[in-house]
Design a protein around this nucleic acid. Sequence first.
RNA 1: GGAGAGAUGGCUGAGUGGUUGAAAGCGGCACCCUGCUAAGGUGUUAUACCCCCUCCGGGGUAUCGAGGGUUCGAAUCCCUCUCUCUCCGCCA
Length: 424
Amino acid sequence: MLDISVIKEQPELVKTAMLNKGETDTSLVDTLLETDKNWRDAVKELDSLRGESNTKAKLIGQLMSKGQKAEAQALIQETGEMKGAIKGLEDKEKMLREQRFGLMLRIPNIPHESVPVGKTENDNVEAFRHGELRTDEWVKPHWELTAEHGWIDFERGVKVTGAGFPFYKGPAARLQRALINYFIDTATERGYTELMAPFMVNEDSARGTGQIPDKEDMMYTVPRDGFFMIPTAEVPVSNFHRDEIFELKSLPVKYVCYTPCWRREAGSYGKDVRGLNRLHQFDKVELVKFVKPETSYDELESLREDAEFLLRQLGLSYRRLLMCTGDMGFTQTKKYDLEVWSPGQQRWLEVSSCSNFEGFQARRMMVRYRDEKGSIETLHTLNGSGLALPRVMAAILEEYQLPSGKLRVPEVLKPYLGGAEELG
RNA sequence: GGAGAGAUGGCUGAGUGGUUGAAAGCGGCACCCUGCUAAGGUGUUAUACCCCCUCCGGGGUAUCGAGGGUUCGAAUCCCUCUCUCUCCGCCA
C-alpha cells in the first residue's frame, strides 16, 4: 500500500508506475482520489457532529448533578435527535473508508529509478554472472540420477499426498538437511537472528503481507480453522512485528527463518515442473529485514550479497538478474533474481528473489519506528531467499555429478555430512 | 474436550453509567541537585485518523481483547465471538 500523500501529490508518477508495471488502466488513481475526497468530507462531518453531541452529553451530566432537570431534558431531546444523523454518517464513512482502502490495495508499488523499464522477462538485465556453464553431455538431469539411487521418491509422494510432494530418502534427505543447516548457520554468522515460525497463519497475517486478497489462490487453506499454509516464511516472519513500533537503535532487525513452503501452483505443467523444478511443498530459508528507510537500498545489496555468497561457497554457477518494471511484481520497488545453472537441463533455475518493498508492506502491517526526532515513521522491509532448497539441490545433483553416478560433496557441506567426500 | 476465572496504557494494577484517554506504582525520556557513584527533586511519557499549521505547535474524532446492542452519555450494563489463566481429561 502506497502512502496516500504520494498518490495525492504525484498522481502522474503513480500512473506511470502502473503502466510500467504492465497495467493498462490507470483510472484507478482518479477513482481513488475522488473516493478519498468523499471520505475526508464524511470524516469531517461525522467528527464535528459527534463533537457537538459529546459536548451536549457532558453538559447534561453537569445539569443533572446540579438538579436542573428541565434544562437537561431539553438537551436530551436535542441529542436524541442527532443520533439518526450520526448513525447514517457512520455507515457512509465506513463504506467510503472500505472503498478507499480497497482501491489503495490495488495500486502497485512504484519502481525505483534504477530499475529498467520493460515489459517481460526478456527485458530483465543480467547484472552479474559467476562460474562457468558446465555443458558435459553425460550429465544426467537430477531426476534421472535420483531415480537410479532411489534418493527422491516422487511416485510414493503422489500416492501419499499428490503430485509435487516428494519424499527425500537417505543421502538426499540428509543433503537437504545439511543445506538447511548450512544456510541458517551462514546467515546467523552474518548477523541474522534465527527464527522458527508457525507453518500456518491466520487471515490477518495473510492480509498483512498481501497474499489476501490478490494472491489467495496460491495458498493451501485449512478452512475449518481459518488458517492458511504459508507459501513462504515471509508471511509469518514479516507479521511477527505487525502493529509494532521499533526504537531507532534496534534497527536494522534481520531474521533468518527456515520453513517448508506450500504453493498450489495452479496451472503449471510440462517440463517446467519436472523433478525438483517446481513443487507444491518445498523447503526454503528466508531472509527478512526491517530497516531505516534511508538505508534500504544498501540493505538490498547486502541481502543479495548474503544470498549470492551461499551460491559461490557451494561452487555453483549463477547469474544475477535485475528485474525490469514489468516482471517484478506488484509490491516491490526493486528486485533481483538469482538463477543457478542446471548442467543436466542446460537451463537457469531461480533460487532466490531479493526485494525491497520500501514502506509498501510496512504501511499495511503498521510496522513503524521512532526516528531521531521521536516521531513515528514507516520503516522499510526487505526479503530474499537464502536459499530455496529444491533447485539448489537439483543444481548440486547435476554440477557435482561424477561419471560413476556418484555425487561429490561440496566442500562447505562436508562438515554437515559427517565429512563424507562422496554420496552414492 | 469439560468446569471456573479473566482480558484496561511499555509493564504491574485501580476503576460497575456522567469533565476517565483513563488513578497509583514501575519503567522510559528531559531538566535540576550532587566532586564521583548511589539516592533525591521537577516535569514529561499511548495509538490511529481528520482539520489548521505545515519549522515548532494547536484543535477535533475514535480506541480500555474483537464485533454488535441499550443510553442524551459506556472501560463500566446486555448479546455474540476470540484469546489467556487455573483445575480435570487427553497427549508428541
